[in-house]
Structures are given as C-alpha cells and as structure tokens.
Design a protein around this nucleic acid. Sequence first.
DNA 1: AACCGCATTGACAGCGCTGTCAGTAATGTT
DNA 2: AACATTACTGACAGCGCTGTCAATGCGGTT
Lengths: 341, 341
Amino acid sequence: MNSIRKVTIEDIAREAGVSMKTVSRVFNHEPNVRETTRERVMETAKAMKYRPNVAARGLASNKSYVFVHFHDNPNPDYLERIHQGIHKICRANGYFAVMEPLPIASGSYAEQVTDYVTEFAIGGIILSPPLCDDKALLESLIARAIPFVRLSPSHDLGISSHTFVDDKAAAMMMTDHLIALGHKDIAFISGPPHHGAAQARRNGFVDSIKTANLNLKSCPIMEGDFSFHSGYKAYEQLARLGANPSAIFAANDDMAAGAMVAALKAGRDIPGDLSIGGFDGSRVGEIMWPPLTTIRQPIRGLAEQATELLLAHIRDPEKVNVSAQLPVSLIKRGSSAPFKG
Amino acid sequence: MNSIRKVTIEDIAREAGVSMKTVSRVFNHEPNVRETTRERVMETAKAMKYRPNVAARGLASNKSYVFVHFHDNPNPDYLERIHQGIHKICRANGYFAVMEPLPIASGSYAEQVTDYVTEFAIGGIILSPPLCDDKALLESLIARAIPFVRLSPSHDLGISSHTFVDDKAAAMMMTDHLIALGHKDIAFISGPPHHGAAQARRNGFVDSIKTANLNLKSCPIMEGDFSFHSGYKAYEQLARLGANPSAIFAANDDMAAGAMVAALKAGRDIPGDLSIGGFDGSRVGEIMWPPLTTIRQPIRGLAEQATELLLAHIRDPEKVNVSAQLPVSLIKRGSSAPFKG
DNA sequence: AACCGCATTGACAGCGCTGTCAGTAATGTT
DNA sequence: AACATTACTGACAGCGCTGTCAATGCGGTT
C-alpha cells in the first residue's frame, strides 16, 4: 500500500528471538517475564518503532483502550488542564483520552452514561465534580463493574480510587492570608451549594473567620455558581445590600475575576480599597490586572494521578480504592494588599 | 470489565436469513443491497439490539470511528471551542472526537502523525493552524490516503476540504474601526511570521493604514507569537522604543490582553489615552476590564463545518475539496474609544 | 433458447493481538 | 540425587468483522 509497513508484534518477536506471546506479555505488564527478556523486548520494540494496534488489542482481549472523562463544567481552562493530565498518561499507555461533556439538562447523569457505555466500548471512566458525587451514576457504574476513578469527590470516598486536595484547609489558607493583611470585613462568594468542594471551601472560610474571632455578620456569604457572571452579579448584589467589605474571597478564579471587573467598573481601586482572592490558580488570574492572588490547585496533577490510579485498578483489580492527596499553595499577587483603614 | 457484547453479525445474519457480509453491507451503507433486504436486516438488528463492535470493525477494515484533531496551540480557550464543535458533530454521527496536542518540539509534525496513525486506526484528521500549513505533513497524509480537513489553512487551498474566515478583511475591519475613531498612530502586534492567518491579519492592517493615507512610520509593527506574554513584552518594547501610539491592534486576544495589562501597569488609562483592539472573540476579552473590543471568529462553527466536511468526504470520496467560508464580526467594547488629541 | 451485462449475494481468509494451556527451565526440598 | 514446586515461555485458536472474488439471479437481446 505504501512504503511504511506496519511493525507488528510478530516482527518484534522474530527480532528479539522470543514468541509473540512474550512480547504481548511485556506490553501488558504481565508478570512472569524475566527481567532480561523484558528489557530485550522493550529495546527492540523501541528500535523498530513498534506501536501496538489498539483495535487488535481491543478485539482480542475484549477490552477497550479508551478512557472517557465525563464532565459537566463550563470552564475551558479547568477542562483543558484536566484533559492534558489525562491525555499524558493515556498516551504513555496506549489509551485514547476522550472528553465527554454531560450537561445535566440532557437527562440524568446515570442515564446518559449508561447510553454512552452501551454504544461505545469503554475501558474506564474518570469523573470530575459535580458528576463524581452523583449517587445514581456511581451506583450504576458499580453495578455494571465499569472501572472508574474520581477527581475531588466529596462523598462516599470509600467506593473508588480518587485524587483530591484539602479544599477546606486551602480555603483557610486564603482566608488567613486576608485576615493577616488586616482585613476584618471579608465577603465570600461561594460555589453552587450541591457542589462538594464548594461546601468545603465555604466551611474553611467560616472556620477561619470564627477562629480569628471576627464578626461573621460583617462577613457576608454570597452564592455564586462558579461562573464569571455569577461573580460579577455577586459583587453588584453586595453593593446593593450596602455591604462594604475590604476584601472578597471568591471560591474560584472565574468568580473572582467577575467580582473584580464589577468592582473596577464601580470605580473601586484594587487592591487599594478592595482586596480580592480567588481559588484555582487558573489562567484568568494571570492575565488580569492586577493579577489575582489565589490558591493554586494542581489540577493537571490531580488528573494525571487519577488516570494512573484508573490504570492501576484495571491492571490489578485489587487496587479498587486507592487515593492520593495533592498539595495546594497560596499564590500572593497584586490583587491583595494590607488593609488601610 | 466493560459492556458485555453478545449479539454479533452472525446472529443477525442467521435470523434475517442472509450472509454476514450482507449484514455488514447494510451497516456500512454500501451500495448493491436490495431495498427489501436492507430493511429486513435493519429490523432484525434493531429487534435484537445489535451493536457493531468498534474494535473488530477497526481491525478488519483498517479504519476507525475516531476523528483526531491534531493541534499545536497553547490557547485553552480556542482549543475548547474547537473541541466543542468537533465533538458535537462526532457525537451525532457515532464517532469519537480525540484532541491530540502535537508540540513541534517532540519531532516533525509529519513524523509524529505517522507514528500516531500507525498505532491507532484513525477515521479522519482535523488540522488547525499551524499544522494545517505544514507541507511535509500534508504530503504524508495524502500519500497515505488518510482523509483530512483543515481549519483556516493559508496555503495549498486546493488539496483538501477546509473552513475559513477572511482574516485579511477582518483585520481591515478592526483597523478601519480604530481609524474611524480618529486614531492616527496605531501599533500592530502581529502573530508568528510563519503562521498563515497571522500574515493575512498583518496584511489587512497594513492595507487599511495605506488606504487611509496614514503614515506607516508612526504605525509600528511588533512581532508576537500569539501568547499573552508576547503581547505584554510587545507593549514594553513599544514604550522602550519611544513609540507612543494612541491605539494598539493585536492579532489575537491573548496578546491584546497582555498589552493591556502592561499598559495598565505602566499607568495608562484605557481607553482614555490608549485604545486596544483584539482578534478572536475569546473569553479573555470578556473577563477583563475594560472589556476588549475584538473581532469575533466563529471558531466553534468553523470546527463544526469542518467536521461535517470530513464526514462528507469519507462517505463520498468525490467530495475531497469542499470549502466553507464563515463570517466574522466586529465587537465594539470598552477598550476602544475616540481619540482625544 | 442461448447469451450478455449488471445487480445482488455469499464463502472464506485474514486483520494484529491475546487467552488458554501445555511445555520447558530454574529453583527449592528431602 | 531424585523429585516437587515455581518461574518462565511458546503454539495455537480465535476475537467480530470486512475485503476479495467468485457465484447467483434477473432482465433484456439476439
């Protein structure tokens, strides 16, 4: 057909002086291959630029080399980082990484996933918030014995492998930072109430305020939905209510950006008479002026780890419930400054 | 491990009283099947809830129901919009949509794609800039007869289906807008020189300046690379050169944002003493203050159309070279205002 | 009736890989 | 030293489907 002939397992086997099956063993991380043999196979495979054929693998093993990340999240920046993490691990292991948006508006999560899984053979599933906390979906996945992992789940932690950060502690870091700057009237813009991480961040905020003996009444909590627009509206409503916080902590960067734009539009000076803190460490925070003080979440790392855990689960069904916590960090930037009474 | 597949073509064939091959024909929209036979097969397949096995199909036919978008673009916002467009059409037609980053740093585009295509059976390929203008890659794809379409290519328009906007005319729209506001010293921040669309935008800018009889010498052109950072640096360099434009037109929104942040940092008032125009209509333009005047490109639409064209090509090999132009529009927002001498 | 041309259909051999199971080498045990 | 146990390895038969090509049916011609 063309000059580039496909390199098959057979070629590798012949070249390395072993059977096809042994080559197969090496590529599937199966036990009982002598270390020297494994190395020899790997080397000749590399030298011959061998790439396993996904379709053949799938057909022969009745498995599928596709991981699907189901999500219901409007933030492209967040999604892109997750995608990169999943993709990296998938690519290194011969899997496809597919991103599947799953708007709750099109039907229950469980229903949609069920349909999807019937139509396409799927090797494993990665769930991010809020899907990772959907009871019906989780049950259906378990009932059908489809391997899955979760990113930052908040409930039923024992039922699957997952990766997470300590959202509450992270929110306390930010709150403590603002308090340390001398702020006493700190408003909080929360995420949607049913969202697990959003709750944890809110709890962290409240705890820090209480611990510092600040007056909770002068620390209003506005409800947002993690969108830029909801942050914008939250600031407007704050103003309408006559609240006059010297600092605002938004539960994600998009809302922080929204609040900041609304404040700038209203003529406020940031950070002169209003400090703003975000949460995520996303790109928006870097491309605004002043740049946003925020909590950096290792989103890409969370996705990578989760994908590794999914792989581990598939390779060794014992590893059904492994979890990994990743660290967050406070990024101090121009949007927060000491309170000037 | 994954969904249990029990109904095979063999079952359908036996039930419908035809051969497996005929069932296969029906499912692949092949010609030369009697209408009554086709219907009978479809009915029994439906009754038996038959689902074709993607892996077996892929292995046997050396084709696959996967479309891959290869890209080398750091902008998550742009990527996400393309992804949405591709995904929508794929989903509706039973295809997987896979996004594959292809950093030029890891080897030539042609090489990387070759490797990838050998490993995964791929149904079709979607290329966006700058990959869509890579000669070696295009040649290799054509040589291997792999169906592909392109988004906004600038060269060899005749060799494949593609979708595009008129970048030059669009850049002229923005330039004319700034000129109409009374600006005479307009700086341009261009994209990377080898990037086709970047060239077209630059040409549009220059043409408009000339047409308006403005002095090109007071309209400096800075070279960027479409990144936020390069926009930032371009502004700094402009200042260092002693240029003092009253308006800046950046060839994409990210660079416009970078220039704006640099200008704000330098104490400039936007749009009071500096107007800024971008290009793309991306999210960053909406989440900054002042919001960015820009050219909206229908990126999602371009991706949708391109995917449709790919599908059309695959279903009817005659349709190798269809192209669709989509309209752009000028979005006037707060970052541009009349020149105040 | 014998013939041609085209539409329709089927038999069969793989696609590249893995599961099964049997076989051989290496190691331990008495 | 004989035997048991374990660690490796390979032969082979498909996985479910499609490409190839030969076979059949059918209408119209000579």
